[in-house]
Simulated scan of single mutants.
Amino acid sequence: SEAMLSAATDLNLESRVPDRVALWRLRQSNPLRKGQGGRKKLDIEEARSLVLITCYLAKQHQELIRRAVGLLEQMAENNREPHQAALLGDYIDAFCNTYQERMEEDEQISTDLLTNLALKLLVDLLFYSAPGGHRRLWLALIDRSTKF
C-alpha cells in the first residue's frame, strides 16, 4: 500500500489515489477479491491510474524482475523446477499465499495452476516494466475485457 501511494504521489495521481481508504476501494472493485459488498466498477481514469502505478513500480523493480526471469529460463533449460531456486521459490510462495488469502475461488485452485499464473505474471511484469509498458498493459486489459 505504501509503495502504491508513494507511486501515486510521484506520478501526480493523488486525486485518484489520495489515501489508503481510496486504494482499498479501488482494490475492492476486483470481482475476484474476497470481501463484502460495496464494490463498484472502476472508471476509466481509476483503471488508468492503477495501470500507471503498476508499471511505475515494475520499472523500479526491473532489475530484480529481470534476474528472476533469467533464473526461470535457466531452470527450464536445466529441466529443474522453478521453486528449486531460492528467488523464484520465495516469489512463488509469496504469490500463492497472497492469492489464496485475498482472492475468492469457486473451488480450491491447485498449487500448479497458481504457480503457472505466478510465473506468467512475472514474465508479463518484465514487459510492463519496459518503456511503453503502461501502453502494453492497457492494451492487454482492453483485449481481455472484450473477450468477456
Rank of each mutant, 00 (worst) to 15 (best):
Y56C: 13
L57P: 12
Y56G: 07
T54N: 09
Q74M: 05
Q74G: 11
A76G: 09
Q100L: 14
L64H: 07
I53Q: 07
Q100W: 05
L117C: 04
L64I: 15
T115A: 03
I65G: 00
P82G: 12
D112L: 03
V51M: 06
L64P: 10
L88C: 00
I92N: 02
G70W: 03
C55N: 02
N79M: 01
Y128S: 03
Y91C: 02
L122W: 05
S49A: 13
A68Y: 03
V51W: 02
H61C: 15
T98P: 09
T111W: 02
L57N: 12
N116G: 09
N97T: 14
E73V: 01
C96L: 12
L122I: 05
S110H: 10
E104P: 12
L113I: 04
R66T: 15
I109R: 07
F95N: 02
I53M: 11
L52C: 04
D124C: 06
L64A: 15
Q60P: 07
C96N: 12
E101T: 05
I53H: 09
H83A: 12
L87R: 09
A118S: 04
E105I: 01
L64K: 15
L125G: 14
L87I: 13
E81V: 08
D124P: 08
M103R: 10
S129I: 03
L52S: 09
Y99A: 12
L126H: 12
E63S: 14
N78C: 09
A130L: 10
M75R: 06
F127I: 07
N116Q: 11
E73H: 00
A68C: 06
A86E: 14
I53S: 05
R66P: 11
G70S: 14
E107G: 01
I109G: 07
I92H: 04
I109P: 00
D90E: 15
G89W: 01
L57F: 00
S110R: 13
V69E: 02
V123G: 12
K120S: 00
Y99D: 15
R80D: 06
